[in-house]
């Protein structure tokens, strides 16, 4: 599948752009693993994954052209 990654918060620094295209992934878990290979800084970081605006777990199957948002928690107040 070809998907678009939308990183939020600190994750946007790692990608250094607002959107990132990713191919060859079938599930949310595979997105995590594939991105960690390209961006080792992601390993061990906590973030939730939302596919097409729905928060999912790693088993979620992706659709073609899904938008996959990566959201880290913010503590600031």
């Amino acid at each position: 599948m070809k998907v678009t990654i939308l990183p939020f918060g600190k994750l946007a620094d790692i990608f250094s752009q607002q959107e990132w295209a990713l191919e060859g992934v079938a599930t949310a878990g595979e997105v995590r693993l594939k991105l960690e290979m390209t961006f080792p800084a992601l390993k061990g970081m906590r973030y939730l994954i939302a596919v097409d605006k729905k928060i999912v777990d790693d088993n979620c199957v992706l659709g073609e052209d899904s938008i996959v948002a990566l959201l880290p928690p913010f503590s600031g107040g």
């Binding site: 600190k10 061990g44 970081m45 906590r46 939730l48 928060i55 880290p72 503590s75 600031g76």
Partner: peptide, 20 residues
């Protein structure tokens, strides 16, 4: 349900460190 696990302490940046 959003964040079952807190981030590693080394990842945490509040307003004082990150700026806001």
């Amino acid at each position: 349900d959003l964040f079952p696990e807190p981030p590693d302490p080394s990842e945490v940046v509040g307003c004082n460190e990150a700026g806001v």
